[in-house]
Design a protein around this nucleic acid. Structure first.
Length: 137
DNA sequence: GCCAACGTTGGC
DNA sequence: GCCAACGTTGGC
């Protein structure tokens, strides 16, 4: 199974990338949107994701790796919602801002832009490479 | 099953 | 703080 690439959003005031680095790993739960849940359920161990700070920062700040997939949301009794466990891979040398993504024509189709309220989005490999290049490699 | 009203999220 | 976009709920 080829590795897939994702983007996970969080308000830095709620859960920041720095906090993830400090804690080492975390369960990513609390997603209450079906499309986002479908993305969560499609994740495999070893997949990587951008970590995006919404609202106050509006930039991709780091990369995380999926270390456990297909978990049930521990806060959900009904079995409806999913969760994964993630660990930090690295912080980006240069965060990639929402404005920079919008300004880049090859990134116009990124799910982040098209569905701004989706908390878990998929990133295509070419988009991933482009954003990595913008972050300084 | 449709659609209007409402709530939430997130960019500006 | 405002508003647009989207999802959900509830009346019919």
């Amino acid at each position: 199974m080829a590795k897939r690439l994702w983007l996970m959003k969080s308000e830095p005031e709620a859960y920041s990338f720095d906090r993830l680095v400090k804690e080492g790993r975390t369960i990513w739960d609390g997603v209450r949107n079906y499309r986002a849940r479908n993305n969560l359920q499609a994740m495999q161990v070893g997949d990587e994701a951008f970590f995006y700070h919404s609202v106050s920062d509006k930039e991709i700040v780091g990369i995380v790796r999926i270390v456990a997939a297909g978990l049930a949301d521990p806060k959900d009794d009904t079995g409806t919602w999913a969760a994964v466990e993630i660990e930090p891979v690295r912080k980006l040398a240069h965060p990639v801002s929402l404005a920079a993504i919008k300004a880049e024509p090859s990134l116009a189709e990124v799910e982040l832009l098209k569905l701004s309220r989706l908390s878990v989005a998929e990133i295509r490999p070419d988009e991933w490479k482009k954003i990595c290049a913008m972050a300084g490699g």
